[in-house]
């Protein structure tokens, strides 16, 4: 793990998955907009990482980004009026939208919830 993988300009992409970038962009924007403080974000992410470690998740970048998503859900619920159930329903709606959209066509959310 401690390989000095370092060049000035990284050869691998900064983000291996689009959602990694989207998740960090959302977190940073919520801090910049003042919806949550930087300290709240750090504490929540730290707690999510601790939880992942305690549950035996491997010490990988994947685990890290899963903790980011977990923390993002937590701060969204505590820092906005969005509730857990709403996030769950919206995820279900996106899943259905993807499954019912023929490959190659834009995926559009049909429900409001």
């Amino acid at each position: 793990m401690f390989k000095p993988d370092d060049p000035l300009k990284p050869l691998r992409p900064q983000f291996l998955e689009g959602w990694h970038a989207q998740a960090l962009a959302l977190a940073d924007t919520l801090v910049t907009n003042g919806a949550i403080t930087a300290q709240e974000w750090a504490n929540t992410l730290g707690a999510a990482l601790d939880e992942a470690e305690r549950s035996g998740a491997p010490d990988t970048e994947d685990t890290y980004y899963n903790a980011v998503v977990q923390a993002l859900e937590t701060v969204t619920v505590t820092g906005t009026d969005i509730k857990h159930a709403e996030i769950k329903n919206r995820k279900k709606a996106w899943t259905e939208a993807y499954l019912s959209t023929p490959h190659g066509q834009p995926v559009v959310l049909r429900t409001g919830g």
Binding site: E73, K91, T95, Y98
Partner: peptide, 20 residues
């Protein structure tokens, strides 16, 4: 075709936060 579970969770959060 179907994004991964965390990708869908991020998508859900993003669309809700944008709407709000």
């Amino acid at each position: 075709h179907l994004p991964s579970d965390p990708a869908l969770r991020v998508k859900a959060l993003e669309s809700l936060l944008v709407e709000r």
